[in-house]
Design a protein around this nucleic acid. Sequence first.
DNA 1: CTGAAAGCGCTTACAG
DNA 2: CTGAAAGCGCTTACAG
Lengths: 338, 338
Amino acid sequence: VNSATIRDVARAASVSVATVSRTLNGIDSVAEKTRDRVLRAAGELDYVPNSGARALSTRRTDTIGVLLPDLHGEFFSELIRGIDLAARANGLHLLLSSSHGDPAEAAAALRAMRSRVDSIILMLPQGGEDLLFAAGIGAGTGAVPMVFLGQAAAKGGHCSLAIDNYAGASAITEHLLASGRRRVAFVAGPADNADAGERLRGYRAAMRRAGLDERVVDGDFSEQAGRDAARHILAGQMRPDALFCANDMMAIGALDALKDAGVAVPGDIALAGFDDIPIARYVSPPLTTAAVPIAEIGRQALECCAATIAGRKTDQQRTFTPQLVVRASSPTNSNHAD
Amino acid sequence: VNSATIRDVARAASVSVATVSRTLNGIDSVAEKTRDRVLRAAGELDYVPNSGARALSTRRTDTIGVLLPDLHGEFFSELIRGIDLAARANGLHLLLSSSHGDPAEAAAALRAMRSRVDSIILMLPQGGEDLLFAAGIGAGTGAVPMVFLGQAAAKGGHCSLAIDNYAGASAITEHLLASGRRRVAFVAGPADNADAGERLRGYRAAMRRAGLDERVVDGDFSEQAGRDAARHILAGQMRPDALFCANDMMAIGALDALKDAGVAVPGDIALAGFDDIPIARYVSPPLTTAAVPIAEIGRQALECCAATIAGRKTDQQRTFTPQLVVRASSPTNSNHAD
DNA sequence: CTGAAAGCGCTTACAG
DNA sequence: CTGAAAGCGCTTACAG
């Protein structure tokens, strides 16, 4: 790769490299005429500063690292889109990586990112946050500022953007109950996932308040888990009249299994999910869910990074409350005859 | 950011920085004892080489740039996932960017990426390829090797992975005709999109071979465009008995609009899409489509980058033929009474 | 307003 | 087998 260097530009414009640097960085007073000459030379040579060299002297990479547990599906797609949008607006690059749910892998990825980014947006698969800090990552002054996604509490002065899963799950459950359902079952997410835990807690609290027994089936956020859960429930004796899945993907899987089994939704069983991923409105019947502003969270995460880099603020915790979206899978005025 | 530098490690191990470098890079003969000492020191200091500095002397960044027209939806999500998978396997980082369909923006992004990556995977929105080369990007010896996605022809020794859209669209159209449909309408993709153009060509050829009139409605790959197209067609006089959308998202939009209008699918109108994005099988009825191995293409694109960097090969053109997937939206034995 | 020079943290011939 | 030194391409006090 033989691109032009700052020296080539300096030579072409008959100035020192210092002057080229100053001109291109828009700082310092550079004579109008000199400036023009430099700019023209840079343009003709199609000069683009070498980012590695620049990073070496400025200690800024203008890059944000993004570490996600997975890159699969609509949720992460939306999140990345939101992050990308804000990154472009801030002139920042994005270094993307996924940890595939393995905390050790996440730690390794974080370490590899260290010198390549100014800040990191990360979403940890499990309660891996502690693990991370135990590994010495994120602590100390030498640490890269981080923005945690989906964790209720920010540690050591880092930003954190969380979803009020408890409130969202309570709202969904209450809606199902208000529509006349009584035997509301819940399909849980991964046991070690904080978001999933809160959703479970929200469901439980709402059932308790209504004086009803809870019914929890295991799941792992995958569409297949939803399918399995639905089958499991149909095989049991006390068939529920409503099924609340901890995320939309599982609800979609469950919907499929229910249809296969000839169970009417919402006629026999009302169905609800969580997230409001784009597909949610296209399945049939459209899915009731708790809408999480995914792209917006991504955008704010990036803005948080940008602010931290710019030295404007350091930490900040924000919680997004999901909005109940009632669709045909669980109509409000349930004509459900029990 | 005060991470340990190679000098710190050298000091701690009582050797020169050259020896540390050699040890960590696994090259050259380093005495067993020295090696152990260096490794221990590096471990204790949690040393990670500064990537910018390393890139400066090796001219390798171990990073692959990915430039996509958009980051929205399942298609790109799958693609990125495939790329990421292979990147991890090859110890490569991913720098992600989207051009939002603007060729000028794409050129700027490419330029900004230049010094940050060893190779670039890019998918151009329009016939922007020519535009790119006209802008001097990708030409010459100083150029970063690129892998083109979705373009039939590789330029200047770059790799290219393409989809045989023509074959896929022909197959879909022939399937619809074979199931007894005669008035097959086509909802086109963006006029300036090469993939979309080929799909249109495939549809046209199949209709011509069958001696039938074509019927093309404009679209742009968005779900909304599919909805609009369906409405447009229902408003017309000659109502088609099959609708073939240039991609799944439009088919899903069309499906929604058809349902709203009380039109039975496939009873009144058979429906087909293209891509086989994950949602395709979850809509009701499940969508007939031409399956494109999206993640696999992403994986191979990355492998192509890796191979080029390693100096193994330079160019290569591969074409993937989509596979016809018949689902309930257009059953083979159509009980369609015309 | 501009230039010479040091320094950012690495790698790699070149000696020894 | 190991070290001293040059060099990668930038930025930034420090002089002038």
